[in-house]
Design a binder for these strands. Structure first.
Lengths: 212, 212
DNA sequence: CCACGGTATCGACAGGGTGTCGAGTGGGTC
DNA sequence: GACCCACTCGACACCCTGTCGATACCGTGG
């Protein structure tokens, strides 16, 4: 609904105590590297930022709100990195274009694996995190669907599944596989192969042949 | 490690009060249809089964243990349904074989969507649920990998990605897409198309052409 | 220099959920 | 009739969350 950015902080970012907010955020990301969201209490975050528990509520309305702010940052980072992948190379070297997109995704979220994993957990019970995540996924889906349609129009890719459905399926695969990889789940693809595997499935699904 | 079945109940299933256990299970599956695991207290389960909260602990060590028992049942059901899909038709009609597998998966877990969704939530924080889920996924992965290798050996499918990696990627896609479908997530494939979409991507990924 | 208002902070409380302990109760068995 | 054992629950201790009211700090204008 809203345009884009902040509304989530609180009221005015004028005076000091702004570092407190940063300290809470930093503490949260640090602790998420050690243990799960469930095992981090608001008291942990407050102590980590050098304040008391009630004071925490001055900066954030809840524990989930901290994660939401963290996710917001990662998403912005991912959007910026994705924008740096020039769409121009799609026509010249489609394979490389898709690979760059997947690798960028992998790199950005991998750099904040703890936050990513925590969000995947919290979105199941928190509406705001779910909405932000869904909106982001939807924008990927639209972008991928548009790119697939472009490839079909110029004759590089054959017609087939509705582009949107295909985009959703492929992005869902990436989400789940990358999650498993970040979480070091037991039955998963080797970390160094994960981008290659996803890339290959994408090419086969979009171009329906190994070598486009 | 263990062979297969029960160890999870409690001690002896001899006397009555066994219906209590059933009542707790039934109450849990019913309530999961209405609200999330987080919003169901042990007291809710106990009241629903006509017992007090402390008595609940006589039957199950925790709320998660109830879900684990529920998942156990669904998994057994899925295994039975999958076993009914004859592997013989793989050579005769590969497309139909893969479609039957995906559709069976979809039907069985869809019939217990509430339990499936709850498990996806709880496995992120509960080791036992995660282990059971992982073991099940791993057995699918192995079966799919073996089938792919069979298709390659008989020349029906070209060589390519390691069969195991491909199997993991495809099963992961199914897991995520079916989850979104069951959860009625916003950016998802239309419920009636979901099996078709997954099926098509599987065929393209395994046979690398629309028409095997 | 001193009210004054807003920022920032915390002690203390209430509420709700979990898990445990010890004291029952009732039906089968010797 | 004494005894065991499955079964039941009241009451407690604990932890975490969220809120309220009191307070401290600080810049500004009278």
């Amino acid at each position: 609904m809203g345009p884009a950015t902040s509304k989530r902080g609180r009221r005015s970012p004028r005076p000091s105590g702004d570092d407190r907010e940063g300290a809470i955020l930093a503490t949260a990301e640090r602790l998420l590297g050690e243990r799960s969201m469930r095992d981090i209490s608001i008291d942990d975050l407050a102590r980590g930022a050098g304040i008391s528990r009630p004071t925490f509520y001055f900066y954030f309305p809840s524990k989930d709100a901290v994660l939401l702010a963290l996710l917001d940052g990662v998403v912005q980072e991912a959007d910026a990195a994705l924008a740096a992948v020039s769409a121009d190379i799609l026509a010249a070297d489609p394979s490389r274009y898709w690979r760059d997109c997947i690798a960028t995704f992998h790199r950005t979220f991998g750099a904040h694996a703890a936050v990513t994993l925590a969000c995947a957990e919290v979105r199941l019970t928190n509406t705001e995190v779910l909405e932000l995540w869904s909106r982001v996924m939807d924008s990927w889906n639209q972008a991928v669907a548009a790119a697939i349609e472009g490839e079909r129009v110029r004759g590089a890719a054959p017609p087939g599944l509705p582009a949107r459905d295909l985009a959703i399926a492929l992005n869902s695969m990436n989400e789940r596989v990358l999650y498993s990889s970040f979480a070091h789940d037991v039955p998963t693809v080797a970390a160094e192969d994960v981008v290659d595997v996803l890339h290959t499935v994408w090419l086969n699904a979009i171009y329906q042949t190994t070598d486009p």
